[in-house]
Amino acid sequence: MKLYDYILSPSGYKVRLMAALIGVKLELRPVDFHPGLEHRSPELLSLNPAGSIPILEDGDLILTESSAILVYLAAKAAPKWLAGEKPEEAARVQQWLSFSGRLTASLGAARLHEMLLRPGDIAALQAQGMAALRELEAGLVEQRLRGMRFLAADRPTVADIACFPYVALAPDGGVLLDAYPTIRLWSRALRSLDGFIEMPGIHRLHELKPEPQIEPGEA
């Protein structure tokens, strides 16, 4: 499977993270999004006329939209990351997959503006981002009261992976995460999963490894 990817793209990272968590190997095809704007090149537009990345190629299949790609990877390799049989669980997965698009449009656009100088009404984007974070916090609080640590169940699903990157990278766009204690716990639970990988802006949880005993001169 070939992923057209950009190392700084939170949507590309969703796919890389999902693949890492479920042990799927991806062939990465880096796209020069910045400064080269390669996602708008004829080659990339012929794969995805929307001019967005990531794009997944698997044989004859070409998939765009990161949520669809997450569902594809999970269905192929790790169905327990999809919704189970309970109607409300299935609905919650869909709800948060849809919601993740709003994170991209608000927090993602604020990040592109603040970091890579893309145009946008930054105050409006940040306000929309804050509103989305409040919704997510409220949703996670209610799940926690039901005894569930993740968005749709007491196990992580594609919905969590769809929402996590833009939330974790919100500070890149000038939107602080200090006011959301339950998002913090959820984020930590995801970052502690076996196989979790980072992207720039999300640092390693060094506490997951014991403090190394070092002697001077050994380095």
Binding site: Y6, I7, L8, P30, V31, D32, H34, P35, G36, E38, M115, P171, D172, P200, G201, H203
Partner: peptide, 22 residues
Amino acid sequence: TSLTDLIHFQQTIFLQDRSILE
């Protein structure tokens, strides 16, 4: 190394620094 890989390596490093600097 491809030009894109070289760019992405350096962008990775600098974006890790950015969250410190801010």
